[in-house]
């Protein structure tokens, strides 16, 4: 298990063009990143595509990674998730009808939080997310884990999109107030 400092060193080596270091970085992080984007995209071919783009981007931008701003894994997950979200939004802005299985998969797959031991950061965050009303908590988790759009959330909770917007706004404010800025 590599520490954040190890990952930072590997990123620095990759920025100098060291492919061996880049491969070690890939081996250490690929399953986590793949798991994150597969939950959002729900298709392995799309997940392959996004992960390939993600690591090319990591290779190209490793020199701009700043450990004072973010942890290496946060930086990498953020790149991967942003690509997955961009793709899922572009493919269809109203895919509920076209892909009726989309939300079912979300409903079928168990809440990841139930199964795993929580990291310290995650415990802190979940202490705050847990203070939200039950359906708002579920909304936040569906958005993060499954990449649900406001429209999909509106369909899921049977509410107008404007209500979902308000819920999102209030939830984020409450989470921030709880975490402190």
């Amino acid at each position: 298990m590599l520490t954040p400092d190890d990952l930072t060193d590997l990123l620095a080596a990759a920025a100098r063009g060291d492919r061996t270091a880049f491969e070690r970085l890939y081996v250490a992080t690929r399953a986590k990143l793949y798991g994150v984007v597969l939950r959002i995209l729900r298709r392995r071919d799309l997940a392959d595509e996004v992960i390939q783009e993600t690591y090319l981007k990591i290779w190209g931008s490793a020199g701009s990674f700043n450990p004072a701003v973010a942890s290496p894994i946060t930086w990498m997950v953020t790149i991967a998730r942003n690509r997955a979200i961009d793709l899922v939004r572009k493919r269809s802005e109203a895919s509920i009808e076209e892909e009726p299985q989309a939300m079912d998969v979300a409903a079928d797959s168990p809440n990841p939080l139930a199964a795993r031991e929580l990291s310290e950061d995650l415990k802190r965050l979940m202490d705050c997310v847990g203070l939200l009303e039950a359906d708002r908590k579920e909304m936040v988790l569906l958005a993060y884990y499954n990449g649900a759009s406001r429209e999909q959330l509106a369909a899921k909770f049977d509410k107008p999109v404007n209500t979902i917007k308000t819920w999102l706004r209030r939830s984020l404010i409450e989470i921030r107030e709880c975490l402190g800025s």
Binding site: Y34, V36, I51, I73, T74, R81, P112, R116, L179
Partner: peptide
């Protein structure tokens, strides 16, 4: 927000890519 919310990804089951 990235620094806070990315903690959620700690709970995602890792999946080996091909």
């Amino acid at each position: 927000w990235e620094g806070r919310l990315t903690a959620l990804s700690d709970a995602v089951e890792p999946v080996e890519p091909p």
